[in-house]
């Protein structure tokens, strides 16, 4: 399954890059969502994938029995999902406020910090 996941990750990344290169800031946001998914899956797959064996210690035992899913990448992914969400929420607020001030979601037009030098172009 790692190989198939790697392909899914590749498609996710390619789509994310393509969307982040678009002029519309909302597409950039979509790209960001896809990129976080790709990153999460990458961490998950790097820890190897085990089917149907959650990392739990059964009652009466000191350690899990047999091979169970790798718990460490799961913990990291959990953190990453939440942080990705925080990032997205903040970027969305930025986009929202940017649109309100500049009346545009076209990143070529949103030049509050780096205004164009010559007005002709």
């Amino acid at each position: 399954m790692e190989a198939l996941t790697a392909i899914v990750i590749g498609v996710l990344t390619a789509a994310a890059v393509y969307l982040m290169l678009a002029r519309n800031f909302m597409r950039f946001l979509f790209g960001l969502v896809l990129l976080s998914n790709a990153a999460n899956l990458t961490i998950f797959a790097s820890g190897r994938m085990t089917k149907g064996a959650p990392a739990l210690v059964p009652y009466g035992e000191d350690a899990p029995i047999g091979v169970v899913g790798n718990a460490l990448p799961q913990a990291l992914v959990l953190t990453a999902i939440v942080i990705g969400f925080g990032l997205l929420a903040f970027t969305l607020a930025l986009a929202f406020e940017g649109y309100r001030r500049m009346k545009s979601v076209d990143t070529d037009e949103m030049r509050f910090a780096e205004p164009k030098e010559d007005a002709t172009k």
Binding site: A3, A6, A14, Y18, R48
Partner: peptide
């Protein structure tokens, strides 16, 4: 509006990511 250079770069980055993940596992 679609952009061909952007698409090429996107596919390149995606492919490289897949290769890297495959190498890792």
């Amino acid at each position: 509006k679609h952009s061909f250079p952007n698409a090429v770069l996107a596919v390149a980055v995606g492919t490289l990511t897949t290769v890297v993940v495959l190498l890792v596992v």
